[in-house]
C-alpha cells in the first residue's frame, strides 16, 4: 500500500515535470488518424461467412484541442461523435491512430499507468440519471474520486464536496440524497461537480443537455460557460444542436458517418461554410429552426456497413462529380484553422 503511494507520488512528480516541459502553445489534446471500429455480428454466423465485418464508427479523424478551448462536435445520430469522445477517454479501444494528451501518448497505455492521466480527462454523460450509481448517495459519488486520487486529506473531503456542489450551483443539502430523488437538471449538476472534483484539463461533454427539460437546458449551458471561463478547462462538447454549439463553442467540427468533414472556428463556419454537408446543416437552422437530428437533410443516406470507397457524402451531395466516387477526399487546410474534406469546395 505504502509502496504504491510512493510510486504514484513519483509518477505525479514525473508528470508535473513533463507538463512543465510542454510548451504552452502545444495543444492539450492531439488526436491523429483515430480509427475505431466495431465488429458487426458475432459467433458462428459471422465465422461461417467471410469472417467478421466491421463498422468504422470513427474513420481516421484528426484534430487538436487547445488549452481553454471549447470544441464542438456536431453531426447526425450515428455519425461517430460520441464514439470519438469515449475513445479519447479510452472507453473504446481504438484500432489505430493516436491520442496524445499534454505530450503523452495514451493510446495504448495499460490500466495502471493510465490511472494517473485519468484525472486530467473527465466526462459528462448524456443521461444524468444513469451516469450516477443509483445505489450511491450524492456524497458517495463525489467522495469516490477525491479519495481515489488522494486529491485532499480525508479530513477535508466533506468540505471539498460542499465546494464542488456549490460550484455546480447546488446546495450541500443534497449530499445524503439518492439519484432518483433529484431532478434531471440537479443530477447533471452533480455529474458536472463530480467531473470537476478532479480538476481535469479536458472534459468530454456528451450531449449533456439533450435529455434535460428545455427550461433547464439554458441553465446547464450557462454553467458550462461559466465554469469554462473560470477554470480555463478545455471542453469537447458533443451535440446535435447547432445553436447550442454556436452558443458555447470556439470551434466546431462537423462529423458525417465517421469522418470529420469540416472543422473551423464558429464565426468562420457560420458565415463561410465550405462543405456541402455543413451548408445543408446550416440550411436546416433557418426556416423551421429545428435541429438536425433525423432526416431533415434530404437524400439517400450513406450505408456505413456496405460502402467503403468514395466520399461518404456522395449519395446526398448536390455538388458531386464522378471523381468523388473513387475515394474519400483527403483533409485540406484551406485557411489557418479551417480544414475541410471535399474535392469540390472551391466551387462553393
Amino acid at each position: 500500500m505504502w509502496e504504491e503511494s510512493a510510486t504514484s507520488a513519483a509518477f505525479c512528480m514525473a508528470m508535473v515535470e513533463k507538463a512543465a516541459q510542454v510548451d504552452k502553445n502545444t495543444p492539450l489534446l492531439s488526436v491523429r488518424e483515430l480509427l475505431v471500429r466495431f465488429k458487426l455480428g458475432d459467433g458462428l454466423a459471422a465465422a461461417l461467412s467471410r469472417g467478421p465485418s466491421y463498422l468504422k464508427a470513427v474513420d481516421e479523424v484528426s484534430f487538436d484541442v487547445g488549452r481553454g478551448e471549447v470544441l464542438g462536435l456536431v453531426g447526425e445520430s450515428g455519425s461517430g461523435k460520441t464514439t470519438i469522445g469515449k475513445a479519447i477517454l479510452r472507453l473504446y479501444e481504438p484500432q489505430s491512430g493516436s491520442i496524445v494528451v499534454n505530450g503523452v501518448d495514451i493510446t495504448r497505455m495499460g490500466d495502471r499507468a493510465l490511472k494517473h492521466y485519468r484525472r486530467d480527462l473527465q466526462m459528462v454523460f448524456q443521461d444524468p440519471l444513469s451516469s450516477l450509481n443509483p445505489r450511491h448517495t450524492v456524497r458517495t459519488s463525489l467522495r469516490t474520486p477525491l479519495l481515489l486520487h488522494k486529491i485532499c486529506p480525508s479530513s477535508e473531503v466533506e468540505q471539498r464536496i460542499d465546494e464542488a456542489l456549490t460550484r455546480a450551483g447546488l446546495s450541500p443539502v443534497f449530499k445524503p440524497r439518492y439519484p432518483h430523488e433529484l431532478s434531471g437538471g440537479q443530477l447533471q449538476r452533480v455529474a458536472i461537480a463530480r467531473a470537476l472534483t478532479m480538476s481535469p484539463g479536458l472534459v468530454v461533454a456528451d450531449e449533456p443537455v439533450s435529455k434535460l427539460d428545455v427550461s433547464v437546458r439554458a441553465q446547464i449551458l450557462n454553467l458550462f460557460k461559466d465554469l469554462q471561463a473560470k477554470f480555463g478547462i478545455s471542453i469537447i462538447f458533443i451535440t446535435h444542436d447547432l445553436r447550442v454549439a454556436r452558443y458555447l463553442c470556439h470551434r466546431i467540427g462537423v462529423m458525417y458517418f465517421g469522418k470529420l468533414v469540416e472543422i473551423a472556428s464558429v464565426e468562420e463556419l457560420f458565415t463561410a461554410p465550405k462543405h456541402p454537408y455543413t451548408k445543408a446543416l446550416l440550411g436546416t437552422l433557418g426556416a423551421e429552426g429545428e435541429n438536425l437530428d433525423g432526416a431533415q437533410v434530404a437524400g439517400e443516406a450513406f450505408n456505413p456497413a456496405a460502402d467503403t470507397t468514395g466520399c461518404r457524402y456522395y449519395a446526398r451531395c448536390p455538388m458531386r462529380v464522378d471523381h468523388c466516387k473513387t475515394a474519400h477526399p483527403p483533409t485540406e487546410t484551406i485557411k489557418p484553422g479551417h480544414d475541410i474534406a471535399c474535392y469540390e469546395w472551391r466551387r462553393s
Binding site: 485519468r118 450516477l132 481515489l148
Partner: peptide, 22 residues
C-alpha cells in the same frame, strides 16, 4: 454498459473495485 460504470472507469477506479462497489 451503464454510464455510471463508464464514469467509474473514466475516474480511474480499478476493475475489482468497480465490480464490488459499482
Amino acid at each position: 454498459s451503464e454510464p455510471y460504470v463508464q464514469a467509474a472507469q473514466v475516474m480511474g477506479q480499478p476493475r475489482l473495485r468497480i465490480m464490488v462497489r459499482e
